[in-house]
Design a protein around this nucleic acid. Structure first.
Length: 405
DNA sequence: CATCCACCGGAAATAGGGGGGC
DNA sequence: GCCCCCCTATTTCCGGTGGATG
């Protein structure tokens, strides 16, 4: 028995080492990779560069706002420009501090308090995760800033998500502090939402949006060229079959020209080819990659849900199965959920809260809902899964194991 | 064509977990 | 320790509503 395992392992490894390499430098396809030159974004880089340049002479530049949907190179360009700036600053002995915060990080920077606590932690100042009045956090924050004479560039990525959640007051506070405390902080706000500024208070708007940069989505041709450039670095020669890059580009272009998606797709395609020990990457691998990425995304989202949310999702899946209908109503879900909680010994949440949890599941595109009226039978939401059956089965299996139901 | 269902979803209140000050 | 304060998650409260139904 052991010998057999030994044998297969040996085969596996031998085959692996003899197989042709797919990747030359896989990093080139990762999201953190900063390519030599950023295609189609020269204009934006120049703009951002000239806005931030005064730092090099110790003048505080204007705040900047950057708009554009996901995967249009906002983060990449910003990081690239700031890196260069830092490099030149170092060479000329100008001290600057740069901070990058992704506001969407759950439980890290998704409330005013947590955002400040997180920024402070970047300064190596640690505050309790809860308990203090926000005001005293501000005080600590200001005091910390006072200890820094150099100019600080604070990049707030996905800032629209944060403002949606907690309002724009913190932005107001940041800018106000800037005005009165001879502030030395420059805010670079990055938003995926094009109409973001409309939601801002006009005072905030005027001081934060001194400079605006717009990133438009890449079209399929541009995506194709971007992918080609990266693929040349990332893959061994002759590995990519014709049409692979075009397919990745086309699929991503459908998703509003998201370059991040396209790169992911290409990378995962290669990984699948590698795993299957194929000598090439072709369009079939791209198809597999597409569904694998989707599956991974959904499963990850499911795994990190709070327990209650998982129970709600499980109820929806079980109920859909039981009813055999392609849709169900909120009320049914709630009573099923209620029973389930009792049998698992979990305290059920109220309908109001469950309703919110359902909305969150929809936001994650795990389920789909639609408010309809059933006349005398009232107004409710119809819900169904928005993932394929095979994914549903995987989710169900996962949840079942987790609850031991 | 008025009625009324069964839930939607905003807003305010409350619980619960934590913190500082004295 | 006690007291009071804060933040976040959840509950409570409730006005609102599209359209089948009588």
């Amino acid at each position: 028995m052991i010998n057999l395992v030994q044998q297969t392992l040996e085969n596996l490894f031998t085959e692996y080492i003899n197989s042709k390499n797919i990747f030359l430098k896989k990093d080139a396809l990762s999201l953190n990779y900063t390519p030599e030159n950023v295609s189609y974004r020269e204009e934006q880089m120049k703009q951002l560069g000239s806005v931030l340049a005064p730092i090099l002479k110790n003048n505080k530049p204007s705040n900047v706002f950057i708009y554009g949907i996901t995967g249009t190179g906002k983060t990449l360009v910003t990081k690239h420009v700031i890196d260069q700036l830092k490099k030149i600053a170092n060479l000329n002995n100008v001290e600057i501090t740069t901070l990058y915060v992704n506001c969407k990080m759950k439980r890290v920077a998704d409330t005013e308090y947590r955002l400040l606590a997180y920024i402070l932690s970047l300064f190596d100042v640690h505050v309790p995760p809860t308990g203090l009045p926000t005001e005293s956090i501000y005080k600590i924050f200001f005091d910390t800033l006072k200890n820094h004479k150099e100019i600080i560039i604070l990049t707030l990525d996905e800032i629209d998500a944060l403002v949606d959640k907690i309002g724009d007051e913190f932005l107001y506070n940041l800018t106000r502090m800037n005005q009165y405390n001879e502030g030395n902080i420059v805010i670079v706000g990055i938003s995926n939402n094009l109409t973001f500024t409309e939601k801002l208070d006009s005072r905030v708007k005027s001081s934060l949006c001194d400079e605006e940069l717009v990133f438009s989505p890449y079209n399929a041709t541009q995506l194709k060229n971007i992918l080609s450039d990266r693929a040349k670095v990332a893959f061994c020669e002759g590995i990519l079959r014709d049409g692979v890059i075009a397919k990745c580009a086309a699929l991503a272009a459908q998703e509003h020209g998201d370059a991040r998606r396209a790169l992911n797709l290409l990378r995962v395609s290669g990984e699948i080819a590698e795993r299957d020990q194929d000598f090439y990457v072709d369009e079939k691998h791209v198809d597999f990659a597409q569904s694998k990425i989707n599956l991974d995304y959904i499963m990850e989202a499911v795994k990190v849900q709070p327990k209650q949310s998982k129970v709600v999702l499980y109820s929806i899946i079980k109920l859909l199965e039981k009813e055999g209908k392609p849709y169900i109503y909120t009320g049914d879900v709630f009573s099923y959920y209620d029973n389930l909680c009792k049998s698992v010994g979990l305290k059920p949440l109220t309908t109001r809260r469950v309703s919110d949890l359902i909305s969150e599941l929809e936001m994650l595109s795990i389920i789909e809902t639609k408010v309809i009226s059933r006349g005398r039978h009232g107004r409710t939401r119809v819900l169904n899964m928005s993932v394929s059956d095979s994914v549903v089965v995987k989710i169900r299996t996962f949840l079942k194991e987790e609850f031991l139901i």
